[in-house]
């Protein structure tokens, strides 16, 4: 792993009206690493993700991509940097087939906006094969006919197809059975092996201890700390989630409130 994180957030803050959702949160992830983001409900996990994805704009703090400061004003900015988010609801169109979903909003087309189907179908095949997603029999079947694990695989494959550098997975195993969870966790590991920076948000510590290299704990909108998977225990993480002491106190640094 290189010393410069692929994506780094320094002291970011976000408030909605009078509610301080995030204050002074630090977060980083390296290439080839799986970083878990954990915390109780309302800890700010989703807010962090949405700030990175460009859905929310941050009120304070800095974002660095490969060591360079960047500003993310919308999903397009995040996409340009190579940051892709797989949301919990997967954001798939059930009525469209696998290929159509993989290229949703980014269809290959010629000058008069005619779709280039063979090109899209070929690339979809390649991407699914490179991730060893083999359970999907036909990539021309509607996504509605796929199982939960297959749907998750399609959503992840869509995220990595675009030369992405950072892939953020929001609760990827929440709705899955045992076998399908296995399938998705294997996929997550393969992403990191391919050199991507992977962020996984989950409530399931068992899953996290299986795939993550490091774990960032959030509590009440502040980060409690970063733990090395090899040097920590589930008990330590649980106590950090429920009673962890923030590493920083909001309001100490300047320009917290906009």
């Amino acid at each position: 792993m290189s010393d410069t994180p692929t994506l780094e957030l320094r002291g970011i803050s976000k408030h909605f009206g009078s509610v301080q959702a995030l204050s002074e949160v630090d977060f980083f992830v390296h290439d080839g690493e799986v970083m878990a983001l954990v915390g109780d409900n309302g800890a700010g996990k989703s807010t962090v993700i949405k700030c990175v994805a460009g859905i929310y704009t941050i009120d304070g703090g800095e974002v660095f991509f490969e060591g360079k400061p960047v500003t993310i004003h919308g999903p397009k900015d995040a996409g340009r940097l190579g940051i892709e988010v797989v949301y919990q609801d997967l954001a798939l169109c059930d009525n469209l087939d696998v290929v159509q979903n993989m290229y949703l909003g980014r269809e290959a087309h010629d000058v008069v906006y005619r779709l280039r189907e063979p090109e899209m179908e070929l690339k979809t095949q390649e991407t699914l094969a490179s991730l060893s997603v083999t359970t999907v029999r036909s990539i021309r079947q509607p996504v509605a006919t796929l199982s939960g694990g297959q749907r998750q695989s399609v959503a992840v494959a869509r995220a990595v197809m675009w030369n992405s550098r950072v892939v953020i997975l929001d609760e990827p195993t929440a709705a899955l059975g045992v076998a399908q969870t296995r399938q998705v966790l294997d996929l997550v590991k393969r992403l990191a092996e391919q050199g991507l920076a992977v962020v996984i948000v989950s409530h399931n510590l068992h899953d996290i201890f299986e795939v993550a290299n490091r774990i960032t704990v959030l509590r009440l909108g502040r980060d409690v700390g970063v733990y090395d998977r090899a040097k920590t225990t589930q008990q330590e993480i649980v106590s950090a989630i429920t009673a962890g002491v923030p590493t920083k106190v909001a309001g100490v640094a300047e320009e917290v409130e906009a």
């Binding site: 949301y87 609801d89 798939l92 169109c93 009525n95 469209l96 779709l115």
Partner: peptide, 24 residues
């Protein structure tokens, strides 16, 4: 069926929120 516009029409009807997040 053959243009990006048509594809986006089906996408909006299938899952408008997914279409929006996909940049449509």
């Amino acid at each position: 069926t053959r243009t990006t516009f048509g594809r986006h029409v089906y996408a909006v009807g299938g899952n408008a929120e997914a279409a929006r997040r996909a940049g449509i």
